Simulated assay, not measured.
Amino acid sequence: MSDDPPTPPTDLPDDLGDGLEQCSPTRLRQIAEYAEALAAFRERNDRLDGADDGDGEHADRAHRREDGPENPPDGVPSKATITVKEINDNRYYYWQWRDGEQIRSQYEGPVDPA
């Protein structure tokens, strides 16, 4: 790991970048988890609406869903969607769903079980 701080995306609003700079590592991890869940939620809504978000990923998201697990396990509602998270250069399936105001997720397994 580098001794230099990471470089934010060039199009990140200054106020958001400044706010993140003030956060503790714990808070940053909470924000990252929330951002991942929010992105999955919006992707699911886009997929259900048949929308392409303009970056050409709509077809890719549909393809990933087809390749993922078919049926949620016990304790995961049928409305849950499968998402792919990359952690330490490894990709994993997670079920995600909305529970009231919160986004819930449950680990499913590796994308490439090799």
Rank of each mutant, 00 (worst) to 15 (best):
S2L: 00
D3V: 04
D4K: 08
D4G: 00
P6F: 10
T7H: 03
T7Q: 12
P8F: 02
T10K: 12
D11I: 06
L12R: 03
P13R: 06
D14V: 09
D15R: 08
L16P: 00
L16Q: 02
L16G: 01
D18P: 02
E21M: 11
E21S: 13
Q22H: 09
C23G: 00
R27G: 04
I31A: 05
E33I: 10
E33W: 03
A35H: 04
E36T: 14
E36C: 09
L38G: 03
F41W: 14
R42Y: 15
N45C: 10
D46L: 09
R47D: 13
D52E: 14
D52P: 01
D53E: 12
D53L: 08
G54N: 06
D55Y: 04
G56Y: 02
G56H: 03
G56S: 07
A59S: 13
D60S: 11
R61T: 02
E66M: 09
G68S: 10
N71Y: 07
N71S: 11
P72N: 04
P73Q: 09
P73L: 06
G75L: 05
G75V: 06
V76M: 05
V76N: 00
S78E: 15
S78K: 15
A80L: 03
A80E: 01
T81V: 15
T83C: 12
K85Y: 13
E86T: 15
E86H: 07
I87V: 14
R91H: 14
R91S: 05
Y93N: 05
W97M: 03
R98Y: 02
D99F: 08
E101F: 09
Q102R: 15
Q102N: 14
Q102H: 13
I103V: 12
I103L: 11
Y107W: 14
E108C: 08
G109Y: 03
P110D: 00
V111A: 03
A114E: 12
A114S: 11
